[in-house]
Simulated assay, not measured.
Amino acid sequence: MSSWGERVKLTIFGESHGPMIGMVLEGLPAGEMIDLEAVKKQMARRAPGNDPTATARKESDTPIIVSGICNQITTGAPLCAVIENSNQHSGDYESLKNIPRPGHADYAAFLRYHGFSDLRGGGHFSGRLTAPLVLAGAICRQILERRGIVIGAHAYAVHNVFDTPFDSVNIDAKTLSALNTAFFSVIDSKAQEKMRQKIEAARLQADSVGGIVECACVGIPGGYAEEGMFGGVESVLSSILFGIPACKGVEFGDGFKVSSLLGSENNDSYFYDETGSIKTHTNHVGGILGGITTGMPLIFRCAFKPTPSIAKEQNSVDLSTHRNVKLQIKGRHDPCIVPRAIPVVEAAAALAIMNLWRD
Rank of each mutant, 00 (worst) to 15 (best):
G228V: 09
G232P: 02
G223Y: 07
L237V: 11
G231E: 01
E227G: 12
Y224C: 13
V236Y: 05
L241E: 06
D254H: 14
F242E: 04
V250W: 07
G255S: 08
I244V: 14
G219P: 08
L241W: 15
E251H: 05
G253A: 03
S239W: 04
G231F: 06
E234Q: 14
I244E: 09
V233C: 08
I220G: 05
P245D: 04
V218R: 02
G232V: 08
E251T: 15
S235A: 15
G231H: 06
P221T: 08
L237F: 15
V250R: 03
F230N: 12
G228Q: 05
M229Y: 14
A246P: 06
G253V: 01
P221H: 10
E251I: 12
F252A: 00
P221W: 10
C247T: 11
F252I: 02
G231V: 06
G243V: 01
G222H: 07
P245I: 08
F242V: 03
S238L: 00
G255I: 01
V250Q: 04
G222D: 04
G231K: 08
K248L: 12
G222E: 00
V218Y: 06
I244R: 09
G228T: 02
E226L: 15
C247K: 02
V218N: 06
S235K: 11
F242H: 12
V250N: 07
F242P: 02
P221F: 10
I244P: 10
G222Y: 04
G253R: 04
Y224D: 10
A225C: 13
I240M: 07
I244T: 08
G231W: 06
P245W: 11
F242T: 02
P221D: 07
P221K: 08
A246D: 14
E227P: 00
E234F: 06
E251D: 14
E251K: 04
G223D: 06
S238E: 03
E227W: 12
F252G: 00
S235F: 00
P221R: 09
L241R: 08
G219E: 10
